[in-house]
Design a protein around this nucleic acid. Structure first.
Lengths: 232, 232
DNA sequence: GTAATATTGTGTCCAAACGACACATTCAGA
DNA sequence: TCTGAATGTGTCGTTTGGACACAATATTAC
């Protein structure tokens, strides 16, 4: 098996950025470590890569372990590998970032792992280089959400345009004109009117939409704004 | 040192996508392997991560070894880690992609490594999952070049707008209106007229421009097109 | 039951940007 | 000096985007 005997082998970890949206701001799911090193400190959910496990499978295993969720939006972010990033032993960390509906996870499992949703504006200190990972993930989220219809992953199956509007304001930390936003979103043709209305509202009830899955799949890899489709 | 004794350690490699532009099309620098396994086949330039070496440093070392170049544009792409991607032994590969001026590298060194520039449209078979890596890098190049002033990395210090135009047509594999492209590029304010002209031309000589480095640094992380700057 | 208030849906207007295209200019070579 | 190919600049009509007004809906207060 070992035909590359000259080279050193390293620990390979997976860390997961898990974003949710509570209706007001973007939140991050972090755990309070109950193991050494850094017991009691805040950290991203993570684990080591198993010998016979693909990286993506490992990420899904770790996400499932914490949230009880399958089939969620996951994408590989970057790999962090500074020599001294883990004081115990050199460890390469492949970071994934996931978007979930904040109300859909398994409460039991989250409690068992000592996990909590924290606000990005008010984030506790995280171990190692985990804060850099989060910063990087936030940039990626902003990047992608500006170009691809990715925001829906943070909302329930059906949602209103005002909810979507608040989500985008939270992602970019800025105010967006309500009416122009609505026009832009509707012009994508990705939203389908369910005919129902949001009963939770205290005033005028907003129309509930759902994603047009087919158009979503089709359009996902195209830019919303800039370029005509590359050909080859 | 080994305080994570339960976990398996894996080989970690670095592979480098190196793009160049010959005036007509995007080219990729690949090597003909003179070592096992897969001796004699085409492959990306790569190497293993050293015990005491950051990933970025490793990538720069490998790029320097092949091209003799420092201070070139390098960015981490993705990490490939399928269990059986390397038939010899499980190896995680962190892939970087680099953009260089195709005429600036060290000819000696490239020859010594059996390296060649190949056309993307006419690419030979590559070993392992290297073709996927290239495909992925091409997508990233298209993505970034549409949003950030990254194309200049593939051109010499001074260049003409027709050259830049051809570069973008090559990147996207499509025709772009010459006049509209020119207007768009000039409106970014990133180009400085050097006062000189391209003496190689057989007809009307085009004006040579160079990058305004300061504006380049300032604007690099902002989108060209879509969003107003995110605040926090 | 009616008024007040907050929220949602739709529309208007003007300026900026974009794509399609015309025309004038410059250079090498016939 | 004429010709052809490439380069630089401009025009025009359409579309898009941002700023903003107004109407419709539902809850609550009186």
């Amino acid at each position: 098996m070992n035909q590359y005997p000259h080279s050193t082998r390293l620990l390979v970890a997976i860390d997961c950025i898990i974003f949710g949206f509570d209706g007001d701001e973007i939140k991050l799911l972090v755990i309070k470590r109950n193991f050494e090193p850094e017991r009691g400190k805040w950290s991203l959910m993570g684990g080591f890569v198993n010998q016979e496990e693909d990286l993506e499978v490992g990420a899904e295993r770790i996400l499932y372990e914490l949230t009880g969720l399958n089939n969620i939006y996951v994408e590989q972010l970057l790999t962090f590998g500074k020599v001294n990033r883990d004081p115990v032993e050199r460890t390469i960390s492949v970071v994934f970032f996931a978007l979930i509906n904040i109300h859909s996870h398994d409460e039991e499992s989250v409690r068992a792992h000592n996990a909590h949703w924290v606000s990005l504006k008010n984030m506790p200190q995280l171990i190692f280089d985990h804060e850099k990972m989060v910063q990087n993930a936030l940039e990626r989220l902003r990047y992608k959400a500006a170009l691809h219809p990715i925001g829906f992953e943070l909302l329930p199956e059906t949602f209103t345009i005002p909810q979507l509007h608040k989500l985008y304001e939270a992602i970019y930390g800025m105010q967006l004109d309500r009416r122009n936003f609505s026009r832009k979103i509707l012009s994508t043709g990705l939203l389908v009117d369910t005919g129902e209305k949001n009963e939770n509202s205290a005033t005028k009830k907003a129309v509930l939409y759902r994603l047009d899955k087919e158009k979503y799949e089709d359009k996902f890899h195209s830019f919303w704004y800039f370029m005509p489709e590359p050909s080859a």
